[in-house]
């Protein structure tokens, strides 16, 4: 270093184009590309084996039957992007269905009042968990596990039995369909889920809140040093997931027309599976909501194929999802390794 150094800074260095050539395809999109490729190949392969699979309504039914899962998975994606986890979502759905049913059926409340109230309840429940996690530096896993037991327990406390919903507003929403022509249609729940997905994508990529979520997942210490609102973002993400769970609960009541404390058992795990299969890293900071959509569609497609086949046990769904999860975790490790060696 003792040699005299040039006093003017070198112009754009010639090394730059080499990286560009090496990284024509930004590696951050690889997991997303794999998920989409998997869905497409599963659809094509399924379509070849099973005649009925490639009908448009079957495809639309993926949205209709998994609307609540997609809504929950959107909230879960945000939580996982910060490096956290939310195990309470299934129980919050159950709680929402039970409280809605009791308020509407037993107390005669106006459904249009109950629905926003449920959203508030979900957001408050999630926000409270977020506050515990943020304020007292608690593990998200344990806090939301507590939330999961709490919400499930409260719904049992309110009603042990299933309460069927006969309210005309719920009945008509449950039956309403948006016709897309050619005999194809979408339910209100499916439309809501697509709306939530679009809103989520907007939130993630066009707002400062969304970018703070990614920053938080990338490095909490750095986000703090950058002066980003780390605490508000972390609490906000759990509140958002809680609100998504409540909305999923409302959609679930349209779908099942009942409030029952055993509803949506284990759904939190399906949601996590969908997010992971969708290419989001459990360590946070990396992933896309579009990936989550395809994660949900892949889970739905497996179920659809098993239903169409008719001879396969429904447990095959679990086996295939299990296999896929292992595969994606391995892929994630592989990408993480590749990225590290490059830096």
């Amino acid at each position: 270093m003792s040699a005299p150094l040039p006093l003017t800074a070198p112009a754009p260095r010639p090394t730059m184009p080499r990286w560009r050539a090496l990284l024509l395809f930004d590696s951050k999109y690889t997991p997303l590309a794999i998920t989409i490729a998997l869905f497409v190949s599963m659809t094509v392969a399924g379509g070849i084996v099973y005649d009925g699979l490639l009908q448009p309504q079957i495809f639309l039914n993926l949205f209709v039957d998994n609307a609540f899962l997609l809504i929950v998975a959107v909230g879960m994606t945000f939580v996982i992007l910060t490096g956290g986890i939310d195990l309470s979502v299934g129980s919050v759905i159950a709680l929402t269905t039970v409280v809605s049913a009791v308020l509407v059926e037993h107390h005669g409340w106006n459904p249009w009042l109950v629905m926003p109230l449920m959203l508030l309840m979900g957001a408050a429940f999630g926000g409270a968990m977020g506050l515990l996690i943020q304020r007292f530096r608690l593990q998200p896993f344990v806090v939301t596990l507590g939330g999961m037991f709490l919400a499930r327990g409260i719904s049992f406390l309110i009603s042990v039995d299933s309460i069927s919903i006969t309210n005309p507003v719920y009945m008509s929403i449950a039956e309403a369909r948006l016709s897309l022509g050619g005999g194809c249609s979408l339910s209100v729940g499916a439309l809501l889920s697509i709306g939530v997905l679009l809103a989520g994508i907007w939130l993630a990529h066009a707002t400062a809140f969304g970018r703070s979520i990614y920053a938080l997942g990338g490095s909490e210490a750095s986000a703090r040093l950058m002066g980003l609102p780390v605490a508000a973002t972390q609490i906000g993400v759990y509140a958002l997931s809680g609100a998504c769970s409540a909305l999923a609960g409302i959609v679930y009541t349209f779908y099942m027309l009942s409030g029952y404390s055993l509803h949506a058992q284990g759904l939190e795990l399906d949601a996590i599976a969908a997010v992971v299969v969708g290419g989001t890293l459990l360590t946070g900071g990396s992933g896309y909501l579009v990936g989550t959509l395809f994660g949900v569609l892949i889970l739905g497609l497996i179920q659809t194929i098993i239903t169409i086949d008719g001879t396969l046990s429904s447990w095959w769904t679990k086996i295939v999802i299990g296999g896929l999860l292992f595969l994606f975790c391995l892929l994630q490790r592989l990408f993480a390794g590749l990225r590290r060696t490059r830096v």
Binding site: S212, Y214, A215, S222, A223, M226, L228, S286, V343
Partner: peptide, 15 residues
């Protein structure tokens, strides 16, 4: 002390 997962532009302008 930056976020490796964000773009260069975001790291410069975040906040």
């Amino acid at each position: 002390n930056l976020c490796p997962n964000l773009s260069v532009a975001e790291n410069i302008c975040a906040g």
